[in-house]
Nucleic acid binder design. Structure first.
Length: 576
RNA sequence: GCGCCCGUAGCUCAGUGGAUAGAGCAACCGCCUUCUAAGCGGUAGGUCAAAUGUUCGAAUCAUUUCGGGCGCGCCA
């Protein structure tokens, strides 16, 4: 949190303690006191609800709280004056000198010291983790971008971030994948063999089969079955994972580690975890209740269960399949145990909304291991529906009609994808109208913000050409040469560190794009005022003093924009 | 049936205890002899799904109802 906001909060904590100690008011919940940037800056720069909180708690009515407040507030050096509104808000006006001092911190990129809220802690962010049974499609992009931007945001706010992808390269889905690939290979040799309904029909497996044919020719037509299956499985996985990595790189996403489920299975980490669970009396052999929904082929069977209902889940969960293999959950639990052991201070998972039902059991595992309910945080992304020809497209892997990341990338490019995917709150389901994004750039606000950056850059370049030197800036009295509109944008710029803090704290990167659009709108507006009125232009060669004070905030504006662009992973073009 | 998410302008979405509910797109009217018009200014557009409650104050919290989405076996 930026220090002056904290100072102000502390002031009101102290003030309320004073009022309580003197029995002017009864005890209040201090957490209810808030300091916010005002939505309407005519009423002030910051506001607090303090008086509203204590309103009902007043004991001694003859004590003039406002008078006492006015007296004490003078001790805060950055407050120019306060204004108490009719409805009870206390509005603060910042001193101009202070505002320019904070702007100077932005200009000197000296603001990060206020937002070191991660304090160097190690945080592991697991995201995407799409099954390697096919290329990434539109639904995966959201989680990918969200996880990546959130990670950058954590870095920015002082965390030591580790990006990780969990590859489910094991289990029956992978067997189906290699079977599908083998059938495609056989088809290339004219064999009349069809995929079953639950196998993978996408074109990508035909392409991979062709690769095998080109490389090995008919080698696998008559080989030993066991060897063949193994070969096709590895070949499919290797190729698909490579493609996934390359797709992610297209939109600038890189991981520090890919962890493979098959490696977890091979290690003894599952046994290790189970010893712990057993010691805590959380394992037993039992029969699960009959499921709701479709239960046509269900029959009661005894199996190894995790007593998650004792922890944070509403029922117990299976760990072992009837055929003796571990369930997906057992492996994933072991994987999380492994992450716990790798000395991270926090774990964050980004999951698709289709895994929401799975959250309580994973929290239960972490609680069993760490006895800490905050160690792991699972965030979910709601689905992205694709709109084409004004209609929602139902995507299905089985039908093979999903739109891939590569498709979307080739049509709109990296920046619009990233910007769009991050500008909506992760828990809102979104409709992605591909036609609109392709046809009209305007539909995507990324260009609006980048254009503001390009315009600002052109000013700076021109100033450089004119050899205008910013060093004297702090000697000037800027009040007289900065307009109200410019003051407004400057005040928004100095709130940037607080924005970073809040976005990181609430895990909400979309706050960044909201802020961007606001500040860019202000900038475009000021720019156009200079078109109508020459005296409002940024560069005036006859008045270098005025020019420098304008350029100073424009450069600060660029610094903030570039900083945000970097976090959300888009380009900062100096020309458009 | 149960769990989670959502319902805000014609469309896509912000706002999630605070002041007169916002933006973009679409519509309409203006602004390029100009530091970049991918821009700006203006007009129009709202029962914040509904009801009740909590509160000094509710789009925001609680309860209920309606509507939509995603889940709910030993799949992954």
């Amino acid at each position: 949190m930026d220090n002056y906001i904290k100072n102000l909060l502390d002031f009101f904590y102290d003030f309320s303690s004073f009022l309580e100690n003197e029995n002017y008011i009864s005890a209040i919940d201090k957490n209810q006191i808030s300091i916010d940037y005002s939505s309407n800056n005519k009423q002030g720069d910051l506001a607090t609800n303090f008086l509203l909180i204590i309103k009902r708690k007043i004991i001694k009515k003859n004590f003039d709280i406002e008078k006492e407040l006015n007296k004490r507030i003078k001790s805060i050096e950055f407050i120019d004056r306060i204004l108490i509104s009719k409805n009870g808000f206390i509005n603060f006006f910042l001193k101009n000198d202070f505002v320019f001092k904070k702007l100077n911190e932005i200009y000197n990129k000296d603001f990060l010291k206020y937002i070191n809220y991660g304090d160097g802690k190690k945080i592991n962010v697991e995201f995407v983790s799409a099954n390697p049974t096919g290329p990434l499609h539109i639904a995966h992009i959201r989680g990918a971008v969200f996880g990546d931007v959130l990670s950058s945001l954590y870095s920015k706010t002082g965390y030591n971030v580790f990006r990780e992808y969990y590859v489910n390269d094991s289990g029956s889905q992978i067997d189906k994948l290699s079977n599908s690939l083998f059938k495609r290979y056989l088809q290339l040799f004219g064999e009349k063999i069809e995929l079953t309904e639950d196998e993978y029909p996408g074109q990508y497996l035909i392409d991979i089969a062709k690769k095998i044919k080109n490389q090995d020719h008919d080698k696998w037509l008559n080989s030993k079955e066991e060897e063949t299956i193994k070969y096709f499985k590895n070949f499919a996985l290797e190729n698909i994972i490579l493609e996934i990595k390359s797709d992610l790189e297209k939109i600038n996403i890189k991981f520090d580690k890919f962890t493979y489920e098959s490696d977890i299975e091979k290690s003894n980490i599952i046994d290790e975890l189970f010893k712990i669970l057993d010691k805590k009396d959380l394992l037993y052999n039992g029969v699960l209740e009959k499921p709701k929904g479709d239960d046509s082929d269900w029959e009661p069977r005894e199996q190894l269960l995790f007593k998650s209902s004792n922890l944070l889940d509403n029922e117990d969960r299976a760990l072992k399949k009837l055929n003796g293999e571990w369930t997906y959950f057992a492996n994933d639990a072991a994987y999380h145990f492994d992450k716990c052991k790798r000395s991270f201070d926090r774990l964050v998972n980004i999951w698709g909304s289709d895994h929401i039902g799975y959250i309580p059991r994973m929290y239960s595992i972490i609680k069993a291991i760490k006895n800490d309910e905050t160690y792991l945080k699972i965030l979910t992304c709601q689905i992205v529906s694709l709109i084409q020809n004004k209609q929602k497209i139902k995507m299905s892997k089985r039908l093979g009609n999903f739109v891939t990341l590569a498709d979307v990338y080739s049509k709109v490019g990296k920046d619009p994808i990233r910007y769009y995917m991050i500008s909506t709150k992760n828990e809102t389901a979104i409709d992605f109208d591909l036609d609109a994004v392709i046809e009209k750039n305007k539909e995507n606000k990324v260009f609006y913000c980048q254009y503001a950056y390009a315009r600002a850059s052109s000013i700076i370049n021109k100033a450089n050409e004119l050899n205008i030197n910013f060093d004297d800036y702090n000697n000037y009295n800027n009040k007289e040469i900065i307009s109200d509109e410019e003051m407004k944008i400057i005040k928004k710029l100095i709130s940037y560190p607080y924005l970073l803090y809040q976005s990181s704290y609430y895990n909400e990167p979309h706050r960044l794009t909201n802020y961007l659009e606001e500040v860019c709108s202000d900038f475009h507006s000021i720019w156009n005022k200079g078109k109508d009125n020459e005296s409002l232009r940024f560069i005036d060669e006859k008045n270098i003093k005025k020019t420098i004070s304008k350029i100073f905030w424009i450069e600060s504006f660029r610094i903030v924009l570039k900083d945000i662009f970097l976090i959300i992973g888009i380009n900062a073009p100096e020309k458009m």
